[in-house]
C-alpha cells in the first residue's frame, strides 16, 4: 500500500485516494479543429513509462481535491507531490 501525502491533509493511506491517470493532459482549445488522429491522441493515447510518471490523484475520503504526484512505476517511490497548476518538478 502506498502512503501518499495530500498537499492539504498530509500523509494518508492509498485507500483514501482515487487514481486519475496521467497528469498534464490539456483539453484542446478548439476540438472541432482537430483531425481524427489528433482527437484520438488526446482521448486515448497515453504515456506509460517504466520510470518516473506524473499522475493525478484525488483525496476521495478526505478533502476530495485533485493534485499531482510524480512516482516511479517500478519502485513505487513517490518523488514529488504538487498542487494543480504548479509545473511538474
Amino acid at each position: 500500500m502506498l502512503r501518499i501525502s495530500c498537499p492539504w491533509c498530509g500523509v494518508r493511506d492509498e485507500t483514501e485516494f482515487h487514481y486519475g491517470g496521467q497528469a498534464h493532459i490539456a483539453r484542446p482549445e478548439d476540438p472541432d479543429a482537430l483531425t481524427d488522429a489528433e482527437w484520438a491522441d488526446f482521448l486515448f493515447m497515453r504515456d506509460n513509462p517504466k520510470g518516473a510518471f506524473a499522475e493525478r490523484w484525488m483525496h476521495a475520503a478526505g478533502c476530495r481535491r485533485w493534485f499531482n504526484v510524480k512516482r516511479h512505476t517500478v519502485t513505487h517511490e513517490i518523488l514529488a507531490v504538487y498542487r494543480p497548476g504548479e509545473p511538474a518538478p
Binding site: M1, Y19, E55, R71, T73, V74, H76
Partner: peptide, 13 residues
C-alpha cells in the same frame, strides 16, 4: 491495482 506500475507486485489491500 488502480495505479500504473511495472513492479510485478501489488498492494496488500
Amino acid at each position: 491495482d488502480s495505479y500504473n506500475s511495472y513492479a510485478q507486485r501489488g498492494s496488500f489491500h
